Amino acid sequence: MLASLLPARSWMVDLFTPCGLSDTLEHGLDNLRHRTRATLRCEIDDTARRRRLPSWSGRLADGEPEWLDHLGSAIRAIHQAAVVPY
Rank of each mutant, 00 (worst) to 15 (best):
G28A: 14
C19R: 15
I44D: 00
D62R: 15
T39F: 00
R33V: 07
E64L: 11
T36P: 05
A38T: 11
R52W: 08
Y86F: 14
R33Y: 04
L5Y: 00
S57A: 15
L40I: 03
S73H: 14
A48D: 00
R59K: 15
L68A: 03
S55F: 00
A61F: 06
T47V: 13
D30K: 07
H70C: 07
E43A: 07
E26S: 14
N31V: 03
A77Y: 08
R76N: 10
L29V: 08
R50H: 09
A74N: 10
E43P: 01
R35M: 07
T17S: 15
H79A: 11
L15V: 10
A61V: 11
A8V: 06
A48K: 05
E26A: 13
V83K: 08
I78E: 15
R76Q: 12
H27N: 06
E64F: 08
R49P: 00
R52L: 07
W67E: 13
A74Y: 04
S10E: 08
R37Q: 15
R52T: 13
H70N: 11
S22R: 10
L32G: 04
L68T: 08
S22E: 06
G72C: 15
P18S: 06
H70D: 12
I44C: 06
A74C: 06
F16N: 03
E43Q: 14
M1D: 04
F16G: 06
S73K: 11
W56F: 15
L32R: 04
D30P: 01
T47N: 01
L15I: 12
D23E: 08
L40P: 05
A81W: 10
R50G: 01
R49N: 02
T24W: 07
P65C: 02
G63A: 06
C42P: 00
R37H: 10
R50P: 01
R9Q: 14
A61H: 12
L29R: 01
C19T: 14
G72L: 07
W11N: 03
L25M: 11
L53W: 06
R37Y: 04
Y86A: 14
A8E: 12
G72I: 05
P7T: 12
S57E: 02
H70R: 15
A81N: 11
L53I: 05
T24I: 05
H79F: 15
E26N: 12
D30N: 08
D45L: 08
P7I: 09
P54E: 06
R51V: 11
E64Y: 01
G72R: 08
G28P: 02
T17M: 03
S22W: 06
G58M: 04
D62W: 08
G63N: 10
H70Y: 14
R33A: 12
S10L: 05
H27G: 11
A61N: 09
Y86T: 11
P54D: 02
A48H: 01
P18W: 03
H79L: 09
S22T: 10
L68Y: 07
S73P: 01
L5N: 09
A8G: 14
A38C: 03
S4V: 07
S10Y: 02
D46W: 05
S57Q: 04
S22C: 14
L5W: 00
P65Q: 12
I44S: 00
T47C: 15
